[in-house]
């Protein structure tokens, strides 16, 4: 290993990336877009869970009146929407756009018998007035106990996944695709004719992309933290370790894909085949709890799953090194296997 040659390739790759204004711009703009999207979607008060239409000749006035006399209309997390035309509102119930609809003048209500939300609202409606003070009411043989704690919102759960997913795309396409382009255009062939070794070349590609990914991920994290007050109960150094290992494993996967391919179209196809299942099955958007066990096992094959699991454990549960040791070992092993295979299979031409 010659550090001189390694640093020369690293410098050239960094320079290429920084001078490519469109790629650089996108890499900066895209995270800003993500942060802005989250700030827009998750700032403000929590969203109501149910939507109930209230129709009357003067729906606003009538709603104010019934809220004084009937407990149901004071229930939290239900949005009561004044309605001035009945027929279109009934159609909305049919289409699940409204969960329930009241005609306060005629004393009717509508629910959609196929709507789980409508079913629950009806149960609440029938219980609300009889159990106005729930804290003192009996519930069969059960005695009421309470706990308190900070809510883990969807955004708290989502942020680690989004950071990791952004990292995945940058790692796979920013390295795999670039190497295939180098091979196709003859850059690799020219480098092969020098004393530069494949290991030196590949290491430089990994390091170049790694610092970029960590810088961008840190920027997105800081930006999101400014606008969204999301949870972080763990250690920042540990989170950095997880993201570093995760980035190395994903970059190595990109190298493995690019080891021999000379067609950008084929490389793009394979990278998509890898990244899309990872995006949906690694738990970025939703938990795999309760899904088919086979799918859960399959998800464990993806490095992204372990990055997200470890990041969530740190950020949401405040896990320490012991709590994420399994993920760290798996990510290390995956990085080693991908790098080794990528280096063995690598062809300059």
């Amino acid at each position: 290993m010659s550090w001189r040659r390694f640093l020369a390739v690293l410098k050239a790759r960094n320079r290429e990336f920084i001078r490519d204004r469109s790629a650089l711009g996108w890499n900066i703009f895209f995270p800003v877009l993500i942060v802005a999207g989250f700030a827009f979607a998750f700032s403000g008060k929590p969203m109501d869970l149910y939507k109930v239409g209230v129709y009357a000749a003067d729906p606003v006035q009538k709603l104010a009146e019934v809220q004084k006399t009937q407990a149901f209309f004071r229930t939290d997390y239900i949005q009561f929407i004044p309605i001035s035309k009945l027929a279109p509102a009934i159609t909305k119930v049919e289409r699940h756009q409204l969960d329930m609809l009241f005609d306060l003048d005629q004393h009717h209500y509508w629910i959609n018998r196929d709507s789980p939300k409508g079913y629950l609202l009806e149960r609440v409606l029938h219980g609300a007035d009889t159990v106005a003070d729930i804290t003192n009411s009996p519930a069969g043989n059960f005695q009421r106990q309470t706990v308190s704690g900070r809510e883990i919102r969807y955004v708290d759960w989502l942020i680690p996944g989004i950071l990791a997913m952004n990292m995945m795309f940058s790692a796979l396409f920013g390295v795999g695709y670039v190497i295939v382009r180098y091979r196709k255009s003859g850059v690799l062939k020219r480098l092969q004719a020098t004393p530069l070794t494949a290991f030196e070349f590949l290491s430089a590609q990994v390091v170049s992309r790694l610092w970029l990914i960590l810088a961008i991920t840190s920027g997105v994290y800081a930006g999101a933290d400014l606008f969204i007050d999301f949870s972080m109960f763990g250690n920042y150094a540990l989170l950095l370790l997880v993201f570093t290992l995760g980035a190395v494993s994903l970059i190595s996967l990109g190298l493995l894909v690019a080891a021999r391919i000379a067609s950008e179209e084929l490389a793009g196809g394979i990278l998509n085949v890898l990244s899309w299942p990872m995006m949906f099955l690694s738990g970025v958007w939703f938990s795999l709890e309760g899904t088919n066990p086979l799918v859960q096992k399959l998800a464990l094959l993806f490095p992204l799953t372990h990055v997200i699991d470890a990041a969530r454990a740190i950020m949401i549960d405040g896990a320490g090194l012991a709590g994420i040791s399994t993920q760290l070992v798996v990510l290390t092993l995956m990085s080693a296997v991908f790098l080794l295979l990528g280096a063995v299979l690598f062809r300059w031409k």
């Binding site: 050239a12 790759r13 320079r15 290429e16 001078r19 490519d20 003859g186 850059v187 020219r190």
Partner: peptide
């Protein structure tokens, strides 16, 4: 080489 390329932006 007969046909070769260098890295971009160099």
């Amino acid at each position: 080489f007969q046909s070769t390329a260098l890295q971009d932006y160099m």
